[in-house]
């Protein structure tokens, strides 16, 4: 096995350990204990939090910022796709040409979205004010990962470079803002629990 495989596997192990650390920390601390008398359903609130509440129609952060929102959705889909591809490429590089073409096209699009969001973060005064080096590094690593994933499908020679990028990303995930891959789900759980308990969510009658 080539050296870059070992690097990637080691990085994956470290990433996984970091992920487990954060996950166990969350599990260990557990759900809130609320002494107030529940008026709604936490289960319905949590389901609503992951479904209707994520609908761009119900979210000002989405419908008032539609281009950014759409870029974000494509970018995240690209990330999931690139992660799946990373595991597939461990076992085989022999992927159907049409599928490769479609994957590469989508990954190119998500790369452009990532680059666009990076440019926005650099040029938009408001976003620059909010940003720290971690925000830029995270974006660059993930965007390069998308680009590498799309490129390696047609240019196998970049495989070692691709694996190094993937390894750097994996090592970085548990450290910086990319750990929102775990905390996003925890945040939506908590917000659903909170609003569900008080019967604010699900909301049907009033907007």
């Amino acid at each position: 096995m080539e050296w870059y495989f070992w690097v990637a596997i080691t990085s994956l192990g470290i990433c996984f350990a970091g992920y487990i650390y954060h996950f166990l920390k969350l599990i260990n601390l557990g759900s809130p204990k609320d002494y107030s008398k529940k008026s709604g359903s936490t289960k319905s609130g949590i389901i609503y939090s992951f479904t209707h509440a994520m609908n761009p129609v119900n979210k000002e952060s989405a419908f008032l910022n539609l281009p950014t929102y759409i870029s974000g959705v494509i970018y995240h889909l690209g990330t999931f796709l690139a992660i799946i591809l990373f595991f597939v490429l461990f076992f085989t590089t022999n992927i159907n040409e049409l599928i490769s073409l479609l994957l590469a096209a989508f990954l190119l699009l998500s790369t452009l979205c990532g680059a666009g969001m990076l440019i926005k973060r650099i040029t938009d005064k408001k976003l620059r004010h909010l940003s720290n080096p971690d925000d830029y590094i995270s974006n660059i690593l993930v965007t390069l990962f998308h680009l590498g994933s799309g490129t390696v499908l047609f240019i196998p020679d970049v495989y070692p470079v691709y694996m190094v990028i993937a390894s750097l990303l994996l090592l970085y995930i548990p450290l910086g803002k990319l750990k929102h891959v775990i905390y996003f789900f925890a945040a939506r759980y908590h917000i659903g629990y909170f609003y569900g308990w008080r019967s604010v969510w699900p909301t049907a009658k009033s907007k």
Partner: peptide, 14 residues
């Protein structure tokens, strides 16, 4: 509970 660490670790500065 896990609420505080969740919300302190979740913002992505969008």
């Amino acid at each position: 509970d896990s609420k505080l660490i969740t919300h302190l670790n979740s913002c992505v500065h969008c």
